[in-house]
């Protein structure tokens, strides 16, 4: 799609307190453009609860309900039921970080997904608790430094997008701050679907990942190009790779070595070659599962576009 087709209206206002080069605010800007005016955002404790600004001002120009950390899905469920009961049409959207999604918010998320509440849940995943100052989350990848994994995290991350597929909800998609047109398209699509929808966006964080602030897009793209992050859509039980991930699966693009991605980031600077090898193995296994088993046929057979 042409970037000029994306609306010029801004719903995330400038002069907010997001960090320089913030991947999350970059993604939120695009998400709000895709959602438009009739949107209510439910935001649990996360970086966004901070960068939206302090009372009596706000950087977000659609209605926002801030929620406690564990319960954004439940607050959104109540909000949607309430608006529906009064005949008010609205996109009720949760905008949560990986802490509020993968960890403390998982129970409420699972509950709302199982009930197939008519809400769109968007997880902006920066692979750690950035808001509290860079601590591990269960979305933190193997080997990454955080202030609570000083010699690197010993475990691989879990995958909540997969977990959401297991809930049998109508729509699951992954996206990256490196491909905002792809993100825009997925949010537009999700907006039209009824029931519980889940989109997870990889949103690099310069201070947390320890890379120079202007490289957010480059890092977010490399995550996909090296297979660390896989772009896909899961709709009505069918998984389909999208964008660069799809091109890689179709053999039209060569997957880059993950070292290129890791070397850009200070959080991986301590990794030994054995640890890098472990990450390569992880990528190969995960990729096999996604590209070959679940999405391979669809991905390869379908027409190619990036």
């Amino acid at each position: 799609m042409k970037l000029s087709e994306i609306p010029a209206e801004e719903y995330l206002l400038e002069g907010n307190s997001a960090c320089h080069g913030c991947g999350s605010s970059m993604a939120l800007r695009t998400v709000l453009k895709a959602l438009g005016k009739r949107t209510v955002l439910v935001v649990p404790a996360s970086c966004t609860s901070v960068y939206q600004g302090m009372y009596p001002g706000s950087a977000i120009a659609v209605p926002v309900v801030n929620s406690a950390f564990a319960c954004s899905s439940a607050v959104a469920s109540g909000l949607k039921a309430s608006l529906e009961h009064q005949g008010i049409d609205a996109n009720v959207v949760v905008w949560a970080g990986d802490g509020g999604t993968y960890d403390i918010g998982l129970q409420a998320l699972s509950g709302a997904a199982e009930r197939n509440e008519d809400i769109l849940y968007i997880c902006y995943n920066n692979e750690m608790y950035s808001n509290t100052g860079i601590q591990r989350s269960s979305a933190t990848p193997f080997g990454a430094w955080t202030t609570t994994t000083v010699s690197g995290k010993k475990e691989h991350r879990k995958d909540v997008a997969e977990l959401m597929m297991a809930h049998g909800i109508p729509y699951v998609a992954t996206a990256s701050a490196g491909y905002l047109d792809d993100l825009y398209r997925k949010v537009r699509k999700a907006k039209r679907i009824e029931g519980f929808r889940y989109i997870e966006i990889l949103t690099p964080c310069p201070p947390g990942w320890r890379y120079s602030m202007e490289r957010t897009v480059e890092v977010a793209k490399l995550a996909v190009e090296t297979g660390m992050w896989i772009l896909y859509e899961y709709e009505h039980g069918v998984l389909r790779l999208t964008g660069v991930s799809r091109a890689i699966a179709a053999g039209k693009k060569k997957m880059k070595d993950v070292q290129e991605y890791l070397l850009l980031q200070g959080r991986f600077s301590h990794l030994s070659s054995a640890e890098i090898q472990e990450i390569r193995k992880y990528i190969a296994e995960r990729w096999k599962k996604f590209a070959d088993v679940r999405g391979g046929e669809h991905a390869v057979a379908a027409e190619f576009f990036v």
Partner: peptide
């Protein structure tokens, strides 16, 4: 304070150009 609600405003964190 009655309801803890805030109005959207450009520059909620000030003139961030100074950053």
């Amino acid at each position: 304070i009655w309801i803890p609600a805030s109005k959207p405003v450009v520059g909620v964190a000030g003139k961030t150009g100074y950053w």
